[in-house]
């Protein structure tokens, strides 16, 4: 949408509807009558590529350690690290969230400075329980000399969720780890009544909105 502005798409719409005559995908049109459209891509076909790593070699491991504690790998499946949340956040900082990069990176550095002060080592080298103790203080705004820690925590927390649960197209939620965790079957172009049934979880579809079959291109 934003891209549509200022593209000089003018003149050609006067006097006619200007609506694209491009065929609406026929499977979608008839979808109400069939049970389930398999809009399947086995894995996400074309994730967007990062335009270079935004995070520096110092910041990257800190972010990795951060997301790894926020959504750890455990008996309930892969965590944010394996799901590629850091990849998502890098991508997001490369374009959409670029203005935020500096303040978030500065926040990660403040976190590791606090680790050094309290435990005498970098944040990445702390035990899980010490990491968690520090993260709790960060979330609660209880770290000396790190005034905006709660705010930074909240933004990084939010970006970690996005990285874990967004469409794999953006580089996170790899192998649908996030969607499998919460039971979201996958993006579809049409849902059947059966996909809105209650009682138990729906089977995973592992489909991205940007799979090759998705929009009929």
């Amino acid at each position: 949408m934003a891209d549509n502005f200022g593209k000089g798409k003018t003149g050609n719409t006067e006097g006619s509807s200007g609506i694209s005559r491009r065929k609406v995908l026929s499977s979608a049109v008839s979808a109400t009558s069939v049970s389930l459209i398999p809009l399947v891509t086995t894995s996400c076909t074309t994730p967007i590529q990062p335009s270079g790593l935004v995070l520096s070699a110092e910041a990257q491991p800190l972010l990795e350690a951060f997301v790894d504690r926020l959504i750890p790998a455990d008996e309930n499946g892969p965590g944010a690290l394996a799901a590629g949340a850091v990849f998502y956040i890098n991508n997001s900082m490369a374009d959409w969230n670029s203005q935020e990069t500096d303040v978030l990176v500065e926040g990660l550095f403040a976190l590791t400075r606090a680790a050094r002060r309290r435990f005498d080592r970098e944040f990445t080298l702390l035990s899980d329980s010490n990491k968690d103790a520090l993260l709790r203080d960060m979330e609660d705004g209880q770290i000396d000399g790190f005034d905006n820690s709660a705010q930074i925590f909240s933004r990084l927390h939010r970006l970690t969720l996005e990285g874990m649960f967004s469409d794999p197209y953006y580089g996170g939620n790899q192998n649908y780890a996030g969607w499998d965790l919460i039971g979201y079957p996958g993006a579809v172009m049409a849902s059947s009544p059966d996909m809105q049934r209650m009682g138990g979880r729906l089977p995973p579809l592992h489909t991205s909105a940007y799979g090759s079959d998705f929009d009929g291109e």
């Binding site: 949408m1 798409k9 995908l25 909105a209 940007y210 998705f214 009929g216």
Partner: peptide, 12 residues
């Protein structure tokens, strides 16, 4: 301006 339903709208 005009939107293009098949291009501009995503299940995302």
């Amino acid at each position: 301006t005009w939107m293009n339903p098949t291009q501009d709208y995503k299940a995302d």
